[in-house]
């Protein structure tokens, strides 16, 4: 399996950032960065990462299935993550999530048929003072009302 030259460069730098013999440390970041490019953690990617870090594939499987940001199936081009944890809940994040389900026609961890959007109810994303908060891929949006949510989605649709 080969990755883009930029990613290869990034991975080389990543592996070099751990002491010799401790390359396994690169596992979680490597999975994150490659997932960003590949779209999800495919069985081939598991094998590839295992090979590059010289570890048994089962050790990669152990890690992939542990971390909630690593996905076995592709998420949408825009992965909408709505925090409904306590601080956001107090600002009606549960209602925002329901609104999002309606707006996108998706449920928790579902992907739209065209692959453009996916929705996930996530745990605290560290935006508690600016609740309710969502992340579209890695981008934060704060104080998200249902109206603001619609604007965000609509503008993403326009970008397509």
């Amino acid at each position: 399996m080969t990755f883009s030259p930029e990613l290869e460069k990034k991975l080389a730098k990543l592996i070099a950032s751990y002491p010799p013999g401790k390359e396994k440390s690169a596992l979680v970041p490597m999975l994150m960065f490659t997932q960003d490019e590949v779209g999800c953690i495919t069985p081939e990617l598991v094998q590839e990462v295992a090979k590059r870090l010289n570890i048994p594939p089962v050790q990669v499987d152990e890690v992939v299935s542990y971390y909630s940001m690593l996905h076995r199936k592709p998420m949408g081009k825009y992965h909408i993550q709505i925090c409904t944890n306590i601080s956001c809940l107090l600002w009606d994040a549960d209602k925002l999530f329901e609104h999002a389900c309606q707006k996108l026609g998706l449920g928790h961890k579902q992907v739209s048929a065209d692959g453009q959007f996916s929705l996930e109810e996530v745990e605290c994303i560290g935006a508690c003072s600016w609740a309710p908060a969502i992340q579209v891929n890695y981008d934060f949006h704060h104080h998200v009302t249902p109206e603001k949510f619609d604007q965000i989605i609509d503008s993403l649709k326009k970008v397509q």
Partner: peptide
Amino acid sequence: VGALGIVNR
């Protein structure tokens, strides 16, 4: 051998 691991959370 190390043929077993633990998956999920």
